[in-house]
Design a protein around this nucleic acid. Structure first.
Length: 424
DNA sequence: TATCTGGTAAACAACA
DNA sequence: CTGTTGTTTACCAGAT
């Protein structure tokens, strides 16, 4: 990702939160009314065990914010997704980071840090977070600004160029789609933006990947958003540190939460978007796909040079990254109110009411198939089932109670392998 | 070294 | 007219 992911050594050096975090980790374990023994025996304690003896790794290899995101986005379920600050731990309990004086102190310390440090997330991820944490899963630009400002005070003192970057991302990044505020209203000033469900898994994977960019690049507390993310951080600080497998499990949980019926938007049932279509969720194990969450490859396909994105690899991976499933209905359901939105059958130009038709500047879209003309696989309900089973297996490994049928877990590992093969 | 990716700046148009 | 929003292009830096 971008340069802001891996913090430069000097930045790391100026990160006082590092030591504090370690202290807070111990403090909050107690403060969270969790006996240390329980911390150790918590479902994720296996991860702790794995990293035991490597305190350095514990501090650097773990990104509380990711955990938080994954917690927020995955473990909280519908309530968490709908709540602006869903604080759910692995058991589904909710708790507030501020409940502990010790953790509050940490929080304050990190507030200070967050004021001066750049968030370790790309703009696309920031936008994604903002949108995903909104009750309606869609936000106007202004609210996206607001969310970012609220959670990343860094930007309040940053030059206003970041807003341009946000808009730039919204426009350019195909992960985000513009929907009309009201169906009858022609696009006036300000539209709602939401995450394209097809790219959601890619964004998730980007988050996931950001969790493990480089051996040194995981310490991100200075940019820690003080409010909404802190609770899960508290969770993390309880010692329930996760490793990649656990993140996978958390991601899997998201898949589960994304399954039909799992994701209900209680606050806004009228929202036409269905971000939870399981067929729009695919987390690939292919690291090459990791960057495909972004439209960048598409960007290059459409607005930059055609050299890179038209490569077979990028096309195929894009195809996979988008799940390759029959998302047509999903997308249509999601965008059913967005005038002019077409299914993925459409070519790049066709599907872009968001792009003003009066933009001769836009070069004739190179026939980059992927999102535009991607090869679509048949919808496979059984695949969803397998997906759930695989997720259940992962969760089982992580010690996370899942709602899956336990009897299916026995075969889940095998089936997950099957899935891998299928997606290859 | 080439390419990819993300950040930033800027120009421009449309709209309130 | 001004400010906001949305789109696009260009350039740069870091990572791969």
């Amino acid at each position: 990702m971008g340069p802001i992911i891996g913090m430069s050594p000097d930045k790391k050096a100026e990160s006082p939160g590092l030591l504090e975090d370690h202290v807070c980790a111990q403090a909050s374990c107690r403060a969270a009314a969790l006996p240390e023994a329980e911390c150790a025996s918590s479902p994720l304690a296996t991860s702790v065990d794995r990293v035991s003896g490597a305190a350095d790794e514990e501090l650097t290899n773990l990104n509380w914010l990711h955990e938080n995101l994954l917690q927020n986005f995955t473990l909280g379920g519908p309530e968490a997704q709908a709540s602006p600050s869903p604080l759910f731990d692995i058991e589904g309990r909710s708790e507030h980071f501020s409940s502990s004086p010790a953790s509050s102190a940490c929080s304050r310390a990190n507030d200070q840090d967050s004021l001066k440090s750049k968030p370790p997330f790309s703009f696309s991820l920031l936008i994604y977070m903002a949108i995903e944490q909104s009750p309606s899963k869609s936000l106007p630009v202004k609210d996206i600004y607001g969310w970012i400002l609220e959670h990343f005070p860094y930007f309040s003192s940053a030059p206003t160029g970041w807003k341009n970057s946000v808009r730039h991302n919204l426009s350019l990044n195909k992960c985000f789609r513009k929907v009309e505020k009201s169906l009858g209203k022609v696009n006036g000033k300000g539209s709602l933006w939401c995450v394209d469900p097809e790219y959601r898994p890619n964004l998730i994977q980007a988050l996931k990947k950001q969790h493990f960019p480089a051996p040194h690049g995981f310490y991100t507390p200075p940019a820690s958003p003080p409010s909404a993310f802190s609770p899960s951080r508290n969770l993390f600080l309880q010692g329930c540190s996760l490793k990649e497998s656990d993140i996978d499990a958390a991601t899997a949980m998201m898949l589960l939460n994304s399954a039909p019926g799992h994701h209900v938007n209680p606050s806004d049932p009228d929202i036409p978007m269905d971000l939870s279509r399981p067929d729009s969720v695919l987390v690939s194990s292919d690291p090459k796909q990791d960057h495909n969450y972004s439209s960048s490859s598409f960007q290059r396909c459409s607005s930059r040079s055609s050299s890179s994105s038209s490569s077979p690899t990028s096309l195929s991976s894009l195809d996979e990254g988008r799940g390759g499933m029959a998302r047509e209905d999903s997308v249509q359901g999601l965008w059913a109110g967005s005038e002019g939105f077409h299914s993925d059958e459409d070519s790049e130009e066709e599907r872009s009411p968001r792009r003003t038709p009066v933009t001769p500047r836009r070069p004739p879209a190179l026939k980059c198939s992927p999102p535009c003309k991607r090869v679509r696989r048949e919808a496979r309900p059984e695949l969803d089932e397998e997906l759930k089973e695989a997720a259940g297996s992962l969760l089982h490994l992580a010690g996370v109670r899942s709602c899956l049928d336990l009897s299916k877990r026995a075969v889940s590992a095998v089936k997950s392998k099957k899935m891998e093969k299928f997606w290859k």
